[in-house]
Nucleic acid binder design. Structure first.
Lengths: 243, 243
DNA sequence: CGAACTATTGACGTCGCTCAACTAGTGTGG
DNA sequence: CCACACTAGTTGAGCGACGTCAATAGTTCG
């Protein structure tokens, strides 16, 4: 895949105009590519000396495990997303990351990123923007869990993933392919898998959205947005520090 | 108050050894002091050109308002905490901030922070550490909402605030003064105020913790920690980038 | 073809919400 | 100085959203 068409480039380019030089520096981030199998734990909570990755293909998720064995997924990562960016920059990883599907990811060295920052402020801007967007998403998930009911949460989550996929050229307003199981959805939304199943049925029967056989189809995009209180602003605010 | 004893200095000094020069730069952050009254909205969601503050005295909270009028508090700020740090660095504020008590805060200019970064990497380290800790707390709140019941959430939250207050020299293992109302607690924990009341009664009657008349008292600190699944690690990991 | 995973559905229990009433403290103005 | 309003806290009765337990299929993969 050409660097021009890589998911990360697409995503960053959507918000900051990148020069040839920027693209060049960006391409140097991709030291080596690694493949992981579904279920593999790529980053472990509390462990130092972590690697960071850029997800090229496939899905992953970040989560924390509780004492009672329960799991809360903090965020889901799709192609173009960083994995463990903060854990490398800040030398601390406060959660684990696991491959959802078979996936390909580029290994990224902290030094390369920091060097890149020095060489291109514009690129640094773009990457900080990505990091800040990730944080805004976590905040939005928090609101989701605290103040929305199961149906609204599900609708909101499916819309968010849809919007993010569209940014990197996967999926559109009609829908997208989604490898998450109902167990994943349960751990994202703070529900049980059984209830997730019922929620999906309700949304389908209400003509809002259908999630079946690994495919999410928006039956009524506008009404679903309205129903879920989904406001795309937190995903596509302007780039940071751009004067 | 001398810079040596300011809450922010205490907090940062607990994790990174700061030199005389660092303290000097730090003191220059405090351009002017402002006073806010309880309930005043200091930072507004979605608004550009925001100021950042360092909280010197009093409490604040960051929150998002939903379409139906509901509110979710994302985090509570105590003396020594930054307010709107991200919104200045990234030029975007994804939530609002409100004064809980009458409070005093120093105005901070983005330029001063960035200059400080250039002058002292050690100080930059300390501040990035603080920002990363804030993010770890938001993740922990997310887990709290998604996977713990009302009693556990309350216990966890009261313990977290206790640990943070101890860092800046307010409160100890026995307890602390807390100006939050049961309505605040409800908006933090994703509950209703009525249920918060019952939860506090349960915790009190179980001999775990008492919250009455603006005072939190740990009746059985160890058992409360065990009960709430509270793990202090996410609050006091090592400083970032310190080689 | 069996094992393991995922999806589906029903019966029933419970945690936390809603509605409502009441108390106590605090401040404000006639 | 009292009347009134307003806020914070407390408690009960009833209900609904979501969880638990259990049974059944369909799918995938070795």
């Amino acid at each position: 895949m050409s660097i021009l068409k890589s998911p990360l480039t697409r995503k960053l380019a959507a918000f900051v105009a990148l020069s040839e030089t920027d693209l060049d520096i960006l391409s140097r981030f991709h030291r080596s590519k690694k493949t992981f199998l579904p279920g593999h734990e790529m980053i472990t909570e509390g462990q130092a000396k972590q690697t960071a990755f850029i997800l090229a293909e496939g899905w992953a998720c970040s989560y924390k495990i509780l004492a009672d064995g329960g799991r809360q997924i903090v965020d889901v990562q799709i192609p173009g997303d960083f994995l463990g960016l903060r854990s490398v920059l800040f030398r601390t990883s406060d959660h684990s990351v696991e491959a959802v599907t078979r996936l390909e990811a580029s290994v990224v060295l902290a030094a390369d990123i920091l060097d890149g920052f020095g060489q291109s402020p514009r690129l640094a801007t773009a990457i900080l923007w990505a990091a800040s967007r990730d944080e805004a998403m976590v905040v939005e998930h928090l609101v989701n869990l605290g103040r929305r009911n199961a149906e609204e949460r599900m609708g909101h989550f499916l819309l968010e993933i849809g919007a993010r996929l569209k940014l990197v050229g996967l999926g559109d307003k009609l829908g997208y392919d989604c490898p998450l199981t109902q167990y994943h959805l349960a751990d994202v939304l703070g529900l049980t898998a059984v209830h997730v199943n019922r929620v999906l049925r309700n949304l389908r029967e209400d003509g809002l959205v259908t999630f079946q056989k690994g495919r999410v189809t928006f039956d009524d995009f506008e009404r679903l947005k309205e129903f879920s209180g989904f406001d795309i602003d937190y995903l596509d605010h302007d780039g940071p520090l751009l004067h």
